[in-house]
């Protein structure tokens, strides 16, 4: 199973095995990771699973997957940066084994 590292705003990190095919938001929610809210459940309707892709992974993960994700990022509570993504739109795969995402200071 690919493993994903979630780094909280205070620097604490958790590395979890996430089933390929799941998304990075669910990976956090189902494992009790604080800092990702994901209140709409992945419908691109809330911007509460905002995360920053670690610099080493930005090229591999890429930017927003759609105009809808780009639009919705505009409603994020914390600062939106070039490496900002919505975690629900990042599907876990073997290619992303080792991915590191950083959580913002707040989701709303």
């Amino acid at each position: 199973m690919p493993h994903i590292t979630y780094v909280a705003h205070d620097g604490a990190s958790q590395t979890l095995d996430i089933t390929a095919g799941e998304n990075v938001m669910h990976g956090a929610l189902y494992n009790g990771v604080e800092g990702i809210v994901g209140e709409c459940g992945g419908a691109l309707a809330c911007a509460t699973c905002h995360c920053y892709i670690d610099a080493a992974w930005v090229d591999k993960v890429g930017g927003p997957a759609s105009d809808a994700e780009r639009d919705m990022l505009g409603s994020a509570g914390a600062e939106v940066k070039p490496e900002s993504r919505l975690a629900c739109q990042i599907v876990v795969s073997d290619a992303l084994d080792g991915l590191v995402v950083h959580m913002p200071d707040r989701q709303f």
Binding site: E39, C40, G41, A43, A45, A47, M72, G74, S75
Partner: peptide, 23 residues
Amino acid sequence: RKRKPILSFAGGVHSCMGAHLAR
């Protein structure tokens, strides 16, 4: 319209669990 969060399914932790099914 520019996409913004709508409140039809409420929000927060109690955000409608059937929202995707309804959609």
